Amino acid sequence: MIMWIEPKPSPRAVPASSITVHLDRLATEVAREGWQAEPRYDGPHPLIHVFDRDVPNIGESVTLVHGTTPGLWWYRSSTGEDLAPHTQPVQAAKRVTRILIPYVTAVRAARSHQTQATGERCSPPPARPDPSHAPTIAELQRRFAGVVCWWGAYTYEWWAIVPGGTQWKIVNAEDPDTLIQRVLNTRKRR
């Protein structure tokens, strides 16, 4: 399961304005890479949320954390990966792109497939996920540790990302039972 990892506490107080300056630099670079960047500076940890305009439900949140070297800060992803030092926002933007591309590509491919199969464009997803899917998602993630599952609001299918070393596999299905079979088959092949 992908979850937020709290940033390391700073050994000394640093004004939020100096952190947001570096996050703004990253926001400029991810925009050059073709992403949308939404600053979220009102919480306890200033961050920017990076996403694709056509797939707004999938994104990455990046914050700035104190490094081990005095005066050096790191851009950190929501999964805890240190992306690049604060002096290299271009490198951090490239790493954010590497993280998001597989997910966004999978959603776009599924939409394209659905459009070709039905001849109709997908309707926009609801603003909030359907709460009736939550128990199924929780059960799938409990049964398959490390597998991330969700209901595709655009594709109207079940999805899972199956970890496997350095190569992860994305599978989808029309119903949870078929998704379970596809996850099991993917794990057998690894």
Results as ranks from 00 to 15, higher is better:
W4T: 13
W4R: 13
W4E: 11
W4C: 03
I5A: 04
I5D: 00
I5E: 01
E6P: 02
P7D: 04
P7I: 05
K8D: 10
P9I: 01
S10Q: 07
S10L: 05
S10W: 08
P11L: 08
P11M: 05
R12Q: 05
R12L: 01
R12N: 09
R12K: 10
A13G: 11
A13M: 12
A13K: 14
A13I: 07
A13V: 11
A13P: 09
A13Q: 13
V14R: 09
V14S: 06
P15H: 14
P15N: 15
A16W: 00
A16F: 09
A16K: 15
S17A: 14
S17D: 10
S18A: 15
I19H: 07
I19M: 14
I19Y: 07
T20S: 11
T20E: 12
T20W: 02
T20M: 10
V21A: 15
V21K: 15
H22V: 08
H22P: 00
H22D: 12
L23M: 11
D24P: 11
R25H: 14
R25V: 00
R25F: 07
R25G: 03
R25N: 12
A27L: 09
A27I: 00
T28S: 11
T28N: 11
T28D: 12
E29K: 14
E29I: 11
V30R: 03
V30H: 04
V30M: 09
A31L: 09
A31D: 09
A31S: 13
R32Y: 10
R32W: 01
E33T: 08
E33Q: 11
E33L: 13
G34L: 09
G34D: 06
G34M: 12
W35D: 02
W35V: 10
Q36C: 15
A37T: 02
A37S: 15
A37I: 01
E38L: 13
E38K: 14
E38R: 12
P39K: 11
P39W: 03
P39Q: 06
P39F: 03
R40T: 10
R40G: 12
R40S: 15
Y41A: 02
Y41D: 01
Y41N: 03
Y41L: 04
Y41P: 00
D42A: 06
D42T: 13
G43M: 03
G43H: 02
G43W: 01
G43D: 07
P44R: 15
P44L: 13
P44Q: 13
P44Y: 09
H45L: 01
P46E: 05
P46F: 07
P46T: 06
P46A: 08
L47F: 07
L47D: 04
I48K: 04
I48W: 00
H49K: 12
H49W: 07
V50R: 00
F51N: 10
F51Y: 14
F51C: 04
D52K: 00
D52F: 01
R53G: 00
R53M: 02
D54Q: 15
V55P: 02
V55K: 02
P56G: 08
N57V: 03
N57D: 09
N57M: 04
N57G: 08
I58R: 05
G59I: 03
G59L: 09
